[in-house]
Design a protein around this nucleic acid. Structure first.
Length: 121
DNA sequence: GTGATGACGCAGT
DNA sequence: GACTGCGCCATCA
């Protein structure tokens, strides 16, 4: 067991705001997308940066979550650089029926999924 | 302990 | 509508 694995196990034991972010992200239905701000608002994180930070660490923790369905408020794939290859994010979105042009979701408001509204919380 | 950084958002111009 | 500056909070060097 590597230090990395031990670190992951520790993170799995302790439930932090990251787990909440992962949980909400997994609830996003295929073909839809949401924003960092809406997730931050739904979880009352106080800052959208925390959501992006949590998703960034999600790769390190080994969690497999549809992070490609989370974009910034303009519908831009601002997190694509953290995928390997970066084009993977767009490919996954297009595979789910979401059209992406110039690293931006086409008709974003139509595919926007708001947790606070959809989950009736 | 302190300063810098980050997959962002909002208000002001 | 586009650009800039500031705030947000956790993590890392």
């Amino acid at each position: 067991m590597t230090n990395q694995t031990a670190k992951v196990n520790k993170m799995k034991e302790e439930r932090t705001y990251r787990d909440d972010v992962f949980d909400v992200t997994r609830l996003i239905p295929a073909g839809r997308a949401t924003t960092y701000g809406h997730i931050a608002d739904y979880l009352a994180l106080g800052s959208a940066r925390m959501v992006g930070w949590a998703l960034n660490k999600s790769f390190d923790t080994g969690y497999t979550i549809p992070a490609h369905r989370v974009v910034n408020r303009k519908g831009e794939l601002s997190g694509r650089a953290h995928f390997s290859p970066p084009s993977l994010m767009q490919e996954k979105l297009e595979a789910e029926g979401i059209k992406v042009v110039d690293d931006k979701i086409v008709d974003f408001k139509n595919v926007l999924w708001i947790p606070a509204d959809e989950l009736h919380f």
